[in-house]
Design a protein around this nucleic acid. Structure first.
Length: 224
DNA sequence: CCCTGATTCGC
DNA sequence: GCGAATCAGG
């Protein structure tokens, strides 16, 4: 599988929508979780909370340089007047990442994060309300909590939770939107989609001019 | 063990 | 550029 524009678009949307790499990989099909993560990074979609904290080295043990420890000026600094305070450490092999050393204080939240009210978040899982519990036969609990608020719009629809190897994974709508869901029909055995959507998913390459009359997954590129 | 994302590195 | 292997936290 290659990263077509459509697939990249889907990846980007789902990633930004808070879906896990596994879910994205499964929805896309033909790629591994690692592939999704790798691609996401290459796209510059740099991460939401990673379970693995990079490492917090370099605290600030010495706020002030006590004794004058003048760094020996390099042999031939052309036109650079000495700027001791701002002198960057000479980065060795790989240090393209400007790790901003921030204080533990977190002054304000960006307006961006304020907007994402009903979206997920590591700690923002929404649990079922007592009223919607299924009293009778308790089916096997979901394998994992899903970072999505069960909206009334998707009632009866096939949500991410309902995806399995047996139902059509053809996405309908846009990830992150309340009515986003999947086809959910019985799959064409051996394929991730139902017979109908297999017909859409697997087509011989046509001239560009003639293509794109068929519906694309996720409703195609989002128009903003 | 399962999950997660990050990073590395051979291709 | 790609992604398997590997790492490391939850």
């Amino acid at each position: 599988m290659s990263w077509t524009e459509e697939r990249i678009d889907t990846l980007r949307k789902m990633w930004e929508g808070g879906q896990t790499a596994s879910q994205i990989a499964e929805a896309l099909g033909g790629v591994s979780r690692n592939a999704v993560i790798g691609k996401a990074h290459r796209l510059g979609l740099q991460s939401r909370p990673s379970p693995v904290v990079p490492k917090e080295v370099e605290a600030k043990p010495e706020p002030e340089p006590v004794v004058a420890a003048p760094p020996p000026p390099p042999p031939a600094p052309p036109a650079a007047p000495a700027a001791p305070a701002a002198a960057p450490v000479i980065s060795h092999t790989t240090a393209p990442k400007p790790i901003t050393i921030t204080t533990p204080l977190e002054p304000e939240r960006s307006p961006e994060s304020m907007r994402m009210v009903r979206s997920v978040g590591p700690g923002g899982f929404v649990r079922q309300a007592p009223g919607e519990q299924q009293p009778p036969i308790a089916p096997a609990p979901p394998r994992r909590l899903v970072p999505a608020k069960p909206a009334p719009e998707i009632a009866g629809k096939t949500s991410l939770l309902d995806l399995s190897d047996k139902v059509c994974k053809w996405p309908l709508g846009h990830p992150g939107e309340p009515d986003f869901h999947f086809c959910g029909e019985k799959v064409n055995p051996g394929f991730p989609y139902c017979v109908d959507h297999c017909g859409h998913a697997y087509q011989a390459q046509l001239p560009r001019r003639d293509r794109r009359s068929a519906p694309l997954p996720f409703g195609g590129p989002r128009m903003r």
